[in-house]
């Protein structure tokens, strides 16, 4: 079993094909982290001269959109993996990104965690990539794989 964590809640057929090659059961997870959303909004607003309120408003808006996209991602991935005969169980969780990911990986006892994101301007990945060393350290023996 593999724990697949989407960074940006974006569906990518190529990711499904890559994960299918390495396992027959997948636990899909999207983590909705309010703090990270503020950093994402900050990246979007950085080049402008608007005050803090605009960033906070954008963060709240993105949080709502991200939750909606996350639910859609779970549904789409279930269908995508079903086509390949792979069992997929998806979940959207709220909380601290690193803590939720590490706790879930340890609770499931998986040997591999796959982080997925889409190429291009991706403020979600810009934020998460800074956390990768911490995630690797906390995962200890569990392998962390990054799929683009």
């Amino acid at each position: 079993m593999v724990l697949m964590v989407s960074v940006d809640a974006k569906k990518n057929e190529r990711m499904v094909k890559s994960v299918v090659k390495i396992c027959d059961r997948v636990k899909g997870l999207v983590i909705v982290d309010e703090k990270l959303m503020e950093l994402v909004a900050d990246i979007a607003m950085r080049k402008g001269w608007l005050g803090e309120r605009f960033t906070v408003d954008l963060a709240n808006l993105l949080l709502r959109e991200y939750t909606r996209m996350a639910e859609r991602w779970v549904e789409n991935m279930r269908k995508g993996f079903e086509k390949h005969g792979v069992v997929f169980e998806g979940e959207v969780r709220k909380g601290n990104f690193v803590e939720v990911l590490v706790d879930e990986a340890k609770a499931l006892g998986v040997s591999r965690v796959v982080l997925t994101y889409k190429k291009g301007f991706n403020p979600y990945w810009s934020v998460i990539k800074e956390l990768v060393p911490t995630i690797r350290r906390k995962l200890e023996d569990i392998e962390l794989m990054i799929l683009v």
């Binding site: 809640a9 974006k10 994402v40 990246i43 979007a44 607003m45 080049k47 954008l58 993105l62 301007f121």
Partner: peptide, 17 residues
């Protein structure tokens, strides 16, 4: 998105790439 928040905000929706 490097130039102005206008492009960055729209792209952050995730609905457009």
């Amino acid at each position: 998105p490097m130039s102005t928040p206008t492009v960055a905000i729209v792209l952050s929706s995730g609905m457009i790439e």
